[in-house]
Design a protein around this nucleic acid. Sequence first.
RNA 1: GCUCCCAUCGUCUAGUGGCCUAGGACGCUGGCCUCUCACGCCGGUAACAGGGGUUCGAAUCCCCUUGGGAGCGCCA
Length: 471
Amino acid sequence: MTVRTRFAPSPTGYLHVGGARTALFSWLYARKHGGTFILRIEDTDLERSSAESVDAILQGMTWLGLEYDEGPFYQTQRFPRYKEVIQDMLKAGQAYHCFCSKERLEQLRSEQMARKEKPRYDGKCRHGVANPPADVSPVVRFKNPLDGAVTVEDLIRGRVVFQSSELDDLIIARGDGTPTYNFTVVVDDMDMNITHVIRGDDHLNNTPRQMNMLKALGRTPPVYAHVPMILGADGARLSKRHGAVSVMQYRDDGFLPEALLNYLVRLGWSHGDQEIFSIDEMVKLFDVTQVHSSAAAFNPEKLLWLNQHYIKNSDPKHIAHHLSYHLGKFGIDPTSGPDLLEVIQVQRERAKTLVEMAQNSVFFYKDFEAYDTKDAASHLKPEAEKPLILLRERLTALSLWEAQAIHEAVAGVAEALGLKLGKIAQPVRVAIAGRAVSPPIDVTLALVGRDKTLKRLDAALEYIRNQTVVA
RNA sequence: GCUCCCAUCGUCUAGUGGCCUAGGACGCUGGCCUCUCACGCCGGUAACAGGGGUUCGAAUCCCCUUGGGAGCGCCA
């Protein structure tokens, strides 16, 4: 039997980290077992579903690299099929029309709550309705078995038993004939021959009902694996309005997709003490049965650390691809300055995100507007004038514009004036980068280029003289 | 309220009855390195929720308590 897994989001918002993690787990499971990964869009809630959300989800999946083998399938395009199954079930006596009004159901619910009972449908219409009111279009309910128990052999939770008496006759078709979630899931998982359902554990309580429907339809239920929710930093469940940001937001914040994936796979799962997993390693080592059954809190600092790790260790060409996007946001065309790969080489150890790296690299490509106020105040002072003038001379005289020679020139000036290297490097840094932070001064100047370096040195000297006059 | 799930450092986790005076990672922190910022290196901080059992022996098994989470929709 070939493994077939699916990710089935409802398009009522973007793809957030929780969804991304269950998608990743499903994807890994399929990849590991040489199976098929299916994407299914559960858009039966016409009110809340939107095409923009579908696009956002697809975009998120693409950015993460979770490619699907089949789909996306849309439930809204399968309505005829759902209707057909509903008719079959009605005919077989496995489902029935219910004419109970919403008001009655609401009252029933509050009465049960008042009696400290679990609210559920009382089965009023289960055995037929003598005089069906002509003015109400009935819903269709599934006839749940009255006794016995349903056992879920969950890959993560182990055995979970539900008494049938806890389950009521759920609605499978609304008054307008459209099918409801628990029913479409069953039909789709059946029709798509899903073998392993890996989903959030908020669905664990739905599972026995889905299994009962599957049984009524004469099918063996798939294997289930309910993965725990992700909690926010405060321990509360991560939700769209509570810290669960879109995966695309992580792209815009300068994260690499592999960093997010690595972070997500380690949330609730581990392989000894290993922290870093390439995609191939994940596929090889990930085992859904070893996923923790307890919820895990999302820790932004660790994600940041992983991102930094991937920035430091990935192929510069790969970084360049993602960094270009962020450079573009700063209005920079990476081909208009020093070789981007060389810039990455010198910046990769000093950035936790690509946004940070882009920000710190702007000065290589564009002249800055103004010096950092504090840095200029502490480094572009009158005493810096002499060393800068001397350095300018030596740099001008350099026959070869490369880091080694530049380093010797800077060190030479320091020595000639009896200064520590920092006394000259810092003013130069502010002059060239606009602030007191940059890669080593020699490689920085080498990359900025002689013309720009000399021009910025002149600007700095002028700045110092003006300050002096004012003072 | 009822049903279901869960419980090791602040966080992610190792641990599946003796290897545990509980290991790793992030964070925080002391030091080294140093032209800035970083990187790196060395060190430190900090946990088995509580109580009962079972056992020669329990973080590991059982029960209770407490604490978290989910579900109980003509939402998905």
